[in-house]
Amino acid sequence: MNVFRLTGDLSHLAAIIILLLKIWKSRSCAGISGKSQILFAIVFTTRYLDLLTSFISLYNTCMKVIYIGCAYATVYLIYAKFRATYDGNHDSFRVEFLVVPVGGLSVLINHDFSPLEILWTFSIYLESVAILPQLFMISKTGEAETITTHYLFCLGLYRALYLFNWIWRFYFEGFFDMIAIVAGVVQTVLYCDFFYLYVTKGWFSRPYRL
């Protein structure tokens, strides 16, 4: 555990909590892509199956349980409790164009050809592109609420901090995981355009326009 890893995890947690609270307090999921949230729920489920097979630390277990729980809670709020406010017409990204290639790639390029390892690889690849339905939705409607941009910023910052974590671990521990690093770079790059807009336009203005 180093400072980049810890702040990355906390940033990820902050993003998840911000989104849950935003939907809960406003009693609306307008502007939020339910498809992205389903993809994140799939990501956490397929990655954290090792909760059943191995114990790493109390921190690790608690965070995994919180991430999974919050992901399903978010999906529940969007598709059940506040379904009436869900903007399905604008959430029109074709997720099969992500899930099918990602599934194929995880079978082809992985650390070990075993079910658990393939599912873990699938989750890493899927996470790197899971935000695309959300970004697509914002580009389609042309605006996002300020709180939604804070969510996206924390979510992007989390993977960027993980990149620094991997540089740190490579130098001080000789640790590196090529699959996670390549997917993490892709994931961070997808946020670059958004980071730029967030800093230059989204900081104080409201509502946020692209």
């Binding site: 090792d50 630390s57 650390h111 070990d112 390892e117 590196f176």
Partner: peptide, 10 residues
């Protein structure tokens, strides 16, 4: 196949 690293990250 690549070497499988320890999965201690989230």
């Amino acid at each position: 196949c690549l070497r499988t690293p320890v999965k201690d990250e989230l």
